[in-house]
Structure formats: structure tokens, C-alpha cells
Write a protein that binds this DNA or RNA. Structure first.
Length: 470
DNA sequence: CCTTTAATTAAACGG
DNA sequence: CCGTTTCCATTAAAGG
């Protein structure tokens, strides 16, 4: 699509600007170090009251180039990530200047990064590590990580003030609950490559339950958590990396790297060793984690793939949504050298940003920039009804993606008036909007807690997370 | 055709 | 409280 080329140009331009900025930042980084480290402590203290944040942004010295403070990007004062898709790597002066003030690894480097190196908070994260590992060590009989499928009462859903927090700075692109009923913990990824953890069960514990790391140099596009190995958290990045956090080893390992952006990632329930991700301008790649090889790659779209999802019941069925204006359902039963068989193509007027199967697998919800949410149903997904829904989030907000709740009844999607619209598939209309004075910004990305009915996390473009609960 | 510009938009920050 | 800054979306329209 022509839009893609504009984006490419834009990216290139921004990269150059960023590079200049990095150079300037390096020149006077020493004078800023004290300020940066001093204020990084305050960040956590104020994390739950974003409005009163005392953080000071580093004042820009020149109005021409776009400048962002390292702290504003959630980075340690000495770490910096550079991407070089379009030009030669910045050698010489910049590299040397940086090496004078840092011995830390850049998140761009193709090696594992330890959690402590990636941590952006001064406080110890031992409580977080212990929490995750202790739930992992529960005996199988005590474990409660089964996915629930129940009807919920929308009226019971509320947003308590203590379930609001700023977990990371800036724009959140993805949010995910740990798939365990023994935990109320969300993980988010933001535009700067930060991965933030928020333990909502941190009552009586030290700190506020919020921990932040910087394992990626760019936007985090997806988060996967293995239901049966909760200590393994996989993240993908626009800068072409997939990292796998092993909480036991306390390292963000590097699973895959490419020059192309990774916009989406998913996993089949029956195969935890394969990652499916959308790479570049329409490629779906299947990566075998154990062999470290790409088992398949298919050119399925003409533009970026925004979501990949698997039918929870018919496990060979995969749905993709793309900025080429289509959403597709694929049959993965016969994948040899050729592409999977296309079972269904939905064509929309504009980019499609999500296509998710319902919990029973019999419905497919699509969200498109053409201001419609579509629901496919029927034996071959031949029936479709559309709901008008304003999806123009503009430049500063992540796009809306309608997600399913705990059964096939409802789809949850953000709206531009700081509410969560709820669409009933039974009534085929918008039935209610979740609103709360505690929701002071627009929630764009959602995740329903797989084991706790009524618990829904909404994430904003300002780094906040709202956890609604019954 | 391809390339480039402008306009749009919400929220955090700071004076 | 209000003006400034954000700048990895997206599209339409203008320009070559």
C-alpha cells in the first residue's frame, strides 16, 4: 500500500533526528546523570498518582530537533538503543562518547540482557521474582491456571481507585495478564521498549508492586506468557527482536532477530515451542524456539499484520488482520512448502487492526479503521453483522482493538470519551459503556484475565493501566 | 505512477 | 490552569 511507503519515509526521518539527539545527549550526559538518577526513585513513589508527578523533563536546548530525555523514555541514564535499518551503524564519535559513560549493554545488542541490567528502577525486584517463581512452584493440584468460560454481569464490573496505576511512561501498545488465578499481575509494553509489571496483590509488601525493565530499543508489539511456565515471558518489538524473559535465570534472552519490524505475535495452545509472528510488510513467520530455526514463513498480506490469533477450539485455524484492509482466516492443517489455505477473506475499506476468535471459537470479531466492528458467525463464518464504532484514535493514541470477555456474549473496546464500550453479540448492538471517574484517560488496549471473570485491564497511551473487576 | 506535505488527535508536563 | 510538546499513524491531497 502507498501508506506503507510514507511510513517508511517517516521512520527514516525520525531515525535520523533521533540519532542527532542521541549525539547531543551524549555530549552533556554527565551533567545530567545526577538529576536522572535522583529522580528515578521518585518515579515509582508517584507511579499511582500520575497527575501529581513531580518528575521534571529535561529541557530541550534546541527547538529544531526532537529531543526526549532518557528517563522520559524509561531508560537508564547510560543506556541507549539505536536502530540502523537504513544507514550505517553510528561508529566513531557517538560510540566512543557513549563508552566513556557506560559499560552497560545496549538493548540493541544481540545477546541476553540480565534483568538487573534492564531494570529501570533503583529498588530491588526480588519481590517480583519471588512472587512469579512461587506461583510457578505450586504443585499441579494447587495450580489454578485454567481458562474460564462463564457469563458475567456487566453491572458488577467496577474500577476501584487502587486498581489504577501508571506502570510505564508514554504509550502502551500491549497489555497481558498472567494466566493464573493465583495472581493478579499485568505486564505491559510501551513505545520505548519498556516492559512493566504490576502486581495488584502487593498489599503489605514493600513498594507499590510496579517494576519496569528496558529490554527492547523500540515499541513492544506483543507479550506472551506461557500458561504452564509462567516464568517465561516472550516479547516482540518493532525493531525486529523477540526476547524471552526467563524469570528463574533472570535474563531477557534473545530468541529471534530480523531487520524487519515485528508487529504482532501469537502462539498456539497446543504448541508452546512455536512462535507465530507478523514480520515486515505481510509475512507470517513460524519460529521453532527449540531448534532456533524458522520452520515456515508465508507472505499472507500486502501490509503490516496487526494481529495473529488462533481458534481456541479448532486449533488449526488462524486469523490475521492487516493494514492492507483485510482480515483472513487460514487453515493450517496442510502447510507444506506452500501457504496455508485461505478459508475466508474479509475486505474492509480501511486497515483492520484486530481479528480475534471468541472464547468458543465460533465467532470472529474484527476492528477496523473504517469505523466498524464486525462479528463473523455461522458454520463457515459466512454471516457477518457490523456495529458502527468510531475508531479514529488519531496520532497519539494506540488504535482500538475489540477484545472478547469470558464467553461469546460481549466484546470490549475503548472509545474516545474515556469509556469502555461493550457490544452484545446476542443483541447485535452496543449495550453499555463502562465509565468511571477513576478512568482519566482513554483506554486503548485491553486484556481479559483468563482465569478471573470480570477482571479486565485497559491500558492508555499515557502509560496508565485500569483494572476493572467484579 | 511515486514522493512529499498537511491535518488530525489526547495526555503529560511545566511555567 | 493553560500553553507546549509529543513525532515508529494514517490518509487525502498536492506536487513532480
Amino acid at each position: 500500500m502507498t501508506g506503507e511507503k510514507v511510513t517508511e519515509y517517516e521512520r527514516k526521518r525520525i531515525e535520523n533526528i533521533k540519532r542527532n539527539e542521541e549525539l547531543l545527549a551524549s555530549l552533556n550526559i554527565k551533567s545530567k546523570l545526577s538529576d536522572l538518577s535522583a529522580s528515578s526513585k521518585r518515579h515509582r513513589v508517584q507511579a499511582k498518582s500520575y497527575k501529581l508527578s513531580p518528575e521534571k523533563k529535561l529541557k530541550s536546548e534546541t527547538p529544531v530537533v526532537i529531543r526526549r530525555s532518557l528517563r522520559n523514555q524509561g531508560m537508564k541514564p547510560d543506556s541507549a538503543g539505536l536502530k540502523d535499518d537504513f544507514t550505517e551503524p553510528p561508529k566513531s564519535s557517538l560510540t566512543n562518547l557513549k563508552s566513556q559513560v557506560t559499560s552497560n549493554k545496549s538493548p540493541r545488542e544481540l545477546v541476553p540482557i540480565s534483568m538487573s541490567d534492564a531494570s529501570t528502577c533503583s529498588q530491588s525486584d526480588a519481590v517480583l521474582v519471588n512472587k512469579i517463581l512461587s506461583v510457578c512452584e505450586l504443585s499441579d493440584t494447587k495450580k489454578a491456571n485454567g481458562k474460564v468460560r462463564v457469563a458475567i454481569d456487566l453491572k458488577s464490573m467496577e474500577l476501584e481507585p487502587e486498581n489504577v496505576a501508571r506502570v510505564v511512561p508514554n504509550r502502551i501498545l500491549c497489555v497481558k495478564f498472567f494466566p493464573s488465578a493465583d495472581m493478579k499481575m499485568v505486564v505491559v509494553g510501551n513505545k520505548f521498549g519498556n516492559v512493566g509489571f504490576w502486581n495488584l496483590d502487593s498489599e503489605g509488601e514493600e513498594g507499590d508492586g510496579i517494576y519496569m525493565y528496558h529490554p527492547h530499543p523500540g515499541p513492544v508489539s506483543a507479550i506472551l506468557i506461557q500458561p504452564f511456565s509462567l516464568n517465561k515471558i516472550i516479547t516482540s518489538c518493532y525493531d525486529g527482536q523477540i526476547r524471552s524473559l526467563d524469570v528463574e535465570k533472570q535474563t531477557f534472552g534473545l530468541s529471534y532477530t530480523t531487520d524487519h519490524a515485528i508487529f504482532s505475535m501469537s502462539q498456539r495452545l497446543d504448541d508452546v515451542n512455536s512462535l507465530y509472528f507478523g514480520e515486515g510488510h505481510g509475512l507470517v513467520r513460524v519460529w521453532d524456539e527449540r531448534s532456533g530455526k524458522s520452520s515456515f514463513s508465508w507472505e499472507l498480506h500486502d501490509s503490516r499484520i496487526n494481529t495473529i490469533d488462533f481458534n481456541p477450539v479448532n486449533i488449526n485455524m488462524m486469523a490475521t488482520s492487516s493494514s492492507d484492509g483485510t482480515a483472513c482466516i487460514w487453515d493450517l492443517r496442510k502447510v507444506g512448502k506452500s501457504k496455508p489455505k485461505s478459508l475466508k477473506v474479509i475486505t474492509r475499506k480501511r486497515a483492520v487492526h484486530a481479528a480475534y476468535f471468541s472464547p468458543s471459537g465460533s465467532l470472529l470479531a474484527t476492528t477496523s479503521l473504517d469505523d466498524k466492528i464486525g462479528v463473523l458467525s455461522g458454520a463457515n463464518y459466512d454471516d457477518e453483522f457490523m456495529i458502527n464504532h468510531y475508531n479514529q484514535t488519531g496520532r497519539w493514541l494506540s488504535t482500538f482493538k475489540g477484545v472478547w470477555g469470558w464467553d461469546d456474549s460481549y466484546i470490549f473496546v475503548g472509545n474516545m470519551k474515556r469509556g469502555v464500550d461493550v457490544i452484545s453479540t446476542e443483541e447485535r448492538r452496543l449495550v453499555t459503556t463502562l465509565e468511571s471517574p477513576n478512568m482519566t484517560a482513554i483506554p486503548c488496549r485491553f486484556d481479559a484475565h483468563p482465569c478471573k471473570p470480570g477482571m479486565l485491564a485497559g491500558a492508555t497511551s499515557g502509560g496508565q493501566v485500569y483494572v476493572w473487576s467484579s
